[in-house]
Design a protein around this nucleic acid. Structure first.
Lengths: 185, 185
DNA sequence: ATGGGCATGTAACGAGTTACATGATTTT
DNA sequence: AAAATCATGTAACTCGTTACATGCCCAT
């Protein structure tokens, strides 16, 4: 029972939050879930998921039990504790990192420095970006379908909806800029 | 003249890009500029700006000269070199980190985990976020005004425009969600 | 037999932050 | 007298990534 004197990084809380839905999960499971959050929050590297889970266990915010599986390798299943729920709720309601969003938009970055390149290359970049956004939109469509009519998923569904609108806005901006750049050529 | 065997982080290129407009700048100046890019790219910590500049100088991508100032502390002015221009252009046209944008949207994160909090608190959070977006919009308005009619700033102006639309979209989504949450109460 | 999915972990490294330290000038 | 601005820098640290290592099952 190591006390929580040092506050945990957001990644820890993200993982703890995933466990807060009540399901017992392995590191592998957590990773899958975390990947579906990539639309509004980056997903941590695989190795970090495991180390964060170990840290959460050290602080007794989650429990771990090992499960032998015939054939497959052993599994470590994690479950949130009461202390974990309390700590997560505290974090959620706290002002920690309240509205501080981090955005590293490399496409806009390259637009900003467009004078060092060519409009043709910029168009190419924007088309590639647009294709990715379309792909994201279709993935988000699947996610939204999956969450529909599931009361327990209503908040995640809101997050997915936000992401959907965001992607659509990005796509529109990219396309509008392509049109404008082509006119200038 | 240390060879460029290890590729530089994006922060280095961002700073190099700032110098690519041709102006001789101090670390302090770079920091000011970098802060105005926060709308689409996070700004590095002050200490990092200085260390990155030193690294760029080591690689001969920029030159440094010291300037004594009466009263004020000494200044170190950096200027991009031909090698720096070439390297920046190479990076700009390369596929390195082409469309990999990083988004850590803590507001959407907290929406996702809304089941662990209250709608009231969520509304409060969204209102705070909205206020910040409005503030960003007004700041971006100033930036855009400053860039208007300056041919050299046409690309940065496009980036500012993108950011402006992004902020507006975010604000709209926040407000729409607030309305919906209030209806449910 | 080859590749993908399941499942976990370590070691080394680099990126980036925080906190501190200095110190003069100008503004309030 | 205090606070903000200009101006730079170091040390300690944490976060997070990359690359590597292991090994079985199942489908093609």
């Amino acid at each position: 029972m190591t006390e929580l004197k040092t506050k945990l990084p957001t990644t820890s809380y993200t993982i703890l939050g995933l466990l807060s839905f009540g399901e017992e999960m392995s590191g592998y499971d957590v990773r899958q879930w975390a990947q579906s959050m990539k639309f509004f929050y980056w997903s941590p590297a695989q190795s970090q998921v495991y180390s964060e889970l170990r840290r959460l266990a050290e602080h007794d915010l989650v429990t771990m039990r090992e499960v032998r599986q015939s054939g497959k390798p052993d599994k470590r299943l994690y479950q949130i504790t009461d202390a974990g729920v309390t700590e997560f709720q505290r974090w959620w309601a706290s002002d920690e990192l309240d509205t501080t969003t981090v955005l590293k938009h490399s496409v806009v970055l390259k637009i900003f420095f467009g004078h060092m390149g060519t409009p043709e290359k910029l168009i190419e970049l924007l088309e590639k970006f647009s294709a990715e956004q379309r792909e994201h939109l279709s993935q988000l469509g699947v996610v939204q379908e999956y969450m529909e009519n599931d009361e327990a998923m209503s908040y995640p569904a809101l997050a997915a909806e936000w992401s959907y609108h965001y992607c659509k806005a990005e796509l529109e901006m990219a396309q509008k800029l392509v049109t404008r750049l082509k006119q200038k050529l």
